[in-house]
């Protein structure tokens, strides 16, 4: 579904992504791990068309992502959920969710998607009239994911959803993301060294210094002692 070919990205003079290639199959939940500041977020933004790469190509459903405007990319179902959420603070939860369905395709499926989001996060349905600025970090994270789903996403690229969340909320959120994935939406997740997420992943990439240094499925990671120790810090 998504194919990244020899991607190079610079931030000014600094090369952040060095010749990265990866693929995500339809229906997979792929996790990208790596320490902070090693290019994961930049890669995710480049995949979603928010940053123009210096070289290389990103293909989504066989089409070159960077030949489209961001509106068009979202309309095609490739939706990015930023690490800092970027919600509309002075609006209610429901308004935020509805605005997620901005593209014409999503607008037609608005009711259905809203139903799905509310079913996934019953809490949001209960407090739909709350202003987003008053929400806790965990609640705001739910709104962000929900808003992404409202765009009729086929592919969700989520940037560090667990950032700043307590461990129990973190597990809950991963569980929700897993549910989203089971509902047929492909997910690409960026995380720092958070081990809980491995339980749900179909495939894991590890990024260090702008390069992919490891790539394997869940079993391989869990069975590979060196990788576990060196990259995830667990025995």
């Amino acid at each position: 579904m998504l194919k990244v070919d020899n991607l190079d990205t610079f931030y000014g003079e600094l090369q952040v992504i060095r010749n990265i290639s990866l693929t995500v199959e339809t229906g997979d939940l792929v996790v990208m791990l790596g320490p902070n500041g090693h290019g994961k977020s930049t890669l995710l933004k480049a995949i979603c068309g928010l940053i123009k790469p210096k070289a290389g190509k990103v293909e989504f459903g066989g089409e070159d992502v960077h030949s489209f405007s961001i509106e068009k990319i979202v309309e095609k179902g490739l939706v990015y959920i930023p690490e800092d959420r970027r919600l509309f603070p002075q609006m209610t939860i429901k308004e935020n969710l509805l605005l997620g369905a901005y593209n014409p395709i999503a607008r037609k499926e608005r009711e259905k998607n809203l139903e799905f989001v509310y079913q996934l996060f019953p809490k949001l349905k209960k407090m739909y009239a709350r202003t987003v600025a008053t929400l806790s970090g965990g609640e705001a994270r739910m709104v962000a994911v929900g808003r992404g789903l409202m765009a009729s996403a086929k592919f969700l690229a989520i940037d560090e959803p667990s950032l700043g969340l307590a461990p129990n909320l973190r597990t809950e959120l991963f569980d929700k993301i897993h549910q989203i994935n089971k509902a047929g939406i492909t997910v690409l997740l960026v995380e720092q060294c958070v081990t809980e997420v491995l339980d749900y992943a179909d495939r894991v990439y590890v990024i260090e210094d702008g390069r992919i240094v490891y790539n394997g499925n869940k079993e391989e990671v869990l069975n590979d002692k060196d990788v576990k120790k060196a990259l995830l810090g667990i025995e």
């Binding site: 961001i70 930023p82 509309f88 603070p89 002075q90 609006m91 605005l99 901005y102 765009a151």
Partner: peptide, 18 residues
């Protein structure tokens, strides 16, 4: 609503595909 959204967080509006 979209106009207010752009005023409140233009980056968010872009991500949503406005």
């Amino acid at each position: 609503m979209s106009m207010r959204a752009v005023a409140q967080d233009i980056e968010g509006a872009r991500v949503v595909g406005m």
